[in-house]
Design a protein around this nucleic acid. Sequence first.
DNA 1: CTTAGCACTCGCCCTATAAGAGTGCTAACA
DNA 2: TGTTAGCACTCTTATAGGGCGAGTGCTAAG
Lengths: 342, 342
Amino acid sequence: MLTERQLLILKVTVDDYIQSAQPVGSNQLAKKSGMTFSPATIRNEMADLEGMGFLEKTHTSSGRIPSERGYRYYVDHLLTPRPLPKEDIIQLRSIFEDKISETEEVIKRSAMILSELTNYTSILLGPDVRRHIVKKLSIVPLTSNSAVAIIVTDSGHVENRVFPIPEGLNPSEIEKMVNILNERLIGVSLNDLHTRLEQETMMIMKQHMERYGELFSTFRQAVILPREKNVYYGGKLNILNQPDFHDLHKIRSLMDVMEESEHIPMIIPVGNQGLHIRIGSENALSAMEDCSVITVSYDIGEEQTGSIAIVGPKRMDYKRIVSLLDTLSGDLSKELNRIFRK
Amino acid sequence: MLTERQLLILKVTVDDYIQSAQPVGSNQLAKKSGMTFSPATIRNEMADLEGMGFLEKTHTSSGRIPSERGYRYYVDHLLTPRPLPKEDIIQLRSIFEDKISETEEVIKRSAMILSELTNYTSILLGPDVRRHIVKKLSIVPLTSNSAVAIIVTDSGHVENRVFPIPEGLNPSEIEKMVNILNERLIGVSLNDLHTRLEQETMMIMKQHMERYGELFSTFRQAVILPREKNVYYGGKLNILNQPDFHDLHKIRSLMDVMEESEHIPMIIPVGNQGLHIRIGSENALSAMEDCSVITVSYDIGEEQTGSIAIVGPKRMDYKRIVSLLDTLSGDLSKELNRIFRK
DNA sequence: CTTAGCACTCGCCCTATAAGAGTGCTAACA
DNA sequence: TGTTAGCACTCTTATAGGGCGAGTGCTAAG
């Protein structure tokens, strides 16, 4: 077990390294306020802490930097979240100041402000569009052989796609189809849409329409997949500001990984409630082994949840980020509830 | 005036430097095929070319690299566009292979393929949404005090935005409003929409509806500005692959500049028909002084034009990019005409 | 006019050296 | 027994010098 003094030294070491990005030595530490022991004592303690795997040296005679285990311990036991400074709160509140009524806009904006506030990259997961409920379907003919299909969901989200229609189709046929679709499909989630389309509507359409086949199948094609991604980024380039990242190759692969939407579930494990911190190799992706990721969930309306993630160097300002995310998660939940509830 | 031999040497020097990214010396050049003169002769000629400002040395006794003037001359007089290799043509054609019916999808895809093909960053300007013509307006109520406004344009583009509506508004009022709006505004461009809204519809609404004021003004708010940007990127990170860029600071500001949509007109001068090449400091933005930008216009339907830009190092493979852009511009124009014409 | 020859320049790499920061260990001290 | 001063040692960083190689400019010969 760690003694009080060791805890203190570990904490101050991590804090200092987070702040300076330089290995911290015993002399330097001794000068810090609250340090009543001599450098020699600190050296002894640091050697112990290194033995226990909390600190590391970059070379034989350098100062110490926290190991991953050190960060982990720091985060688990030594993190004393302090209240956010006023400026931060003001900034966070500014996200909501113009009473935007769209979930997606609010989230986009959160991503932006968050990255500005932290100087790290933020990734926000919005509502899962596939779980939204169809509120209205419509088809607007554009030319003699194309039309745009529009699906409005209960959240105000609009999916739309242009699709080809058979040449010379009677406009009343289309109207008939739209009516049938609306009758049968309002209240269905986007996710269930394509199965329900087949199961329920196909038969009816067959009865009521000639040439239903071509129209129906192209429409189905168009409607299958929501196009919009529910991932929003802020400060993608902030990585370039971090002194911890200098290897262009690593930066490149890190940025690549973050942009690739299929990797997102590896960065932000879905269904994780509350706040989580993943340090270095605790991350699933090897491209992120030099990063820490802090994630927190927030509520969207009453049923769904979204996630906020901050990606930065292991030497991340955990204290500040945790406070920021805590606050933002709460604010965001509240605001989105307001939007959904009205 | 330049002699034949000087032209040859300049061309080969630029070609070699484009290919190798290394300053090219007289011995190296003499080994190239087509070089019938001795290194000494080449040295003399290179000294002359340097005197005329076409070549530069990185230090007193180094090989030569092309100056901006050298690139300019190369591009203006020495560029012999050669037909694209088969693989490139196949790749370009793959953009259109699944007969997408949406302008924006085709453009997005072009941006992607183009950046893969060139290993540079591509920026494509799509149609100016504000010039699109309203095909249909609708309002779908979501909750008791919010609704989503949807505008479909002739190109199949859909603008949509959630906006607040006065509590307890009669649904039939909304319907009435939508009818009036459709009667009056179909055929109007998005750009003219807000002025026409005021001029024509307000009076009519006043006559037919109670409480038109609140509803109308929030609707107007929602409709003012199209949200979608018409800028599409491909290979934003490709800059990181270029050996010419190593200064993180410069990379950062270059990437920043490219993402900022207000800078786009400085990168791609609007209304420029045909192909243009801007080398180094010929660019308007100082962050791009180490870049070359090749732009070409393409047709969207019959009236509008879009632009394609490739951003790379000054040491860019001009020959290849010019051929690629020429071809893509033609193909894209053809394809978009097909989409619009049907 | 072209080219071989040659002295010279400069970047790059390797090595050596000195300074500085920090460590581990030992021994003295409270 | 825990703490601290002292000291030798290690390793990084910065600086300077030497050799190598690629390349140049100039001169003189072909």
